[in-house]
Every structure is written in C-alpha cells, then in structure tokens.
Amino acid sequence: MGLEFAKVLADNQSMVFSVALRFLRDREGAEELAQDVFLQFYRQIARIESPAHATWWLRRAICHRSIDEVRKRKLRPRIGLDDIPESPGQDSQPDLLLRERIRKLVETLPEKARMVVLLRYQEDLDPTEISETLHMPISTVKSHLHRSLTVLRGKLRPQEVCS
C-alpha cells in the first residue's frame, strides 16, 4: 500500500473536522462524522493513488456526508423575516465578535450555498475546484458565492462591513 493511513489522517484531520463542524454546528456530531469519513476512507485506501488524491477524496466525502447529515437532522435554520441576532454593543471586542457573527451568519445559509462558501473561504478552493468537489456547474457555484456574499454583507451592520 503506497499511502500510510496515519499520515493521511494527520495531514487532513483539521480540514475534515472543520468542514463538518462549520456545517453541522455541533462539535460532537462533527467529530463523529469526521471519524466515519476517515473510516470510510480507510476501507477504500487501496484505490487512492496519491496524497493529493486522498485530500480530494476526503474533501468530497465530508462535503457530501455533511449535507446529507444536515438534511437528515433538518438542522437548516428556518428562513424567516426576522432571523439574525442583534449586532453586539459598541464596547465589546469588535474583531472577535465580528468573526463570531460572521460564523453564525454563514451557518444560516442554505446547505449548498453554505458548503460553497466554506470551500471558498475556509479551504481556499477556486470555483472550478468547488464545482468538481460538489458536482455542481461552475455557474451555480459562482451564483451561490455571489448571492451568499450579498446576503452576508447585508446582514452585518453597515459599519461592520469594511467593503
């Protein structure tokens, strides 16, 4: 076997866990799902050709499994007309609270849009790579990105958005 499972695990655990965590919004659930995906990978490891292939495989698996899991749990926040908590007060630590607010806002995006945003801004994938990972047309990826940024920017207070 060309690949060492322990090395693949060490190199990719942060990516797999983070995607699951941001998506499921539940640390325990994210650990469980991440573990499942690695075990699934372990059973397939003979078919994996290289470390890059391993990363690609794991990323695709965790994305699809996360989306499936959310659909099963119906965790997607219900879209209502009043859905975002109030902005923090002026004397709090702005950067940390801003990031927390941004994370919470990302969590309210619809599943596919949320995954596209995660892959773009957490994993730094370009639209082509996102399209291949999620089996989604590039135009749809770009549309999700564009709409999500519009919504996210709009939900932050004007002075919280630098551009």
Partner: peptide, 24 residues
C-alpha cells in the same frame, strides 16, 4: 475587506487532541 473577514472567521479548527488516536 469583507472577504478577508470571512476567511478569518472560517479559519480551520483543530479536532480534539485524541481524535487521530481514536480513529486509528
């Protein structure tokens, strides 16, 4: 800019220290 804020907010998190050991 906002996209930088988004990247900062979505920075990867490490799993628990014993995660890898449990998976192995």
């Amino acid at each position: 800019n906002f996209e930088d804020d988004l990247r900062a907010a979505l920075r990867r998190e490490q799993p628990p220290a014993d995660f890898a050991a449990r998976v192995l």
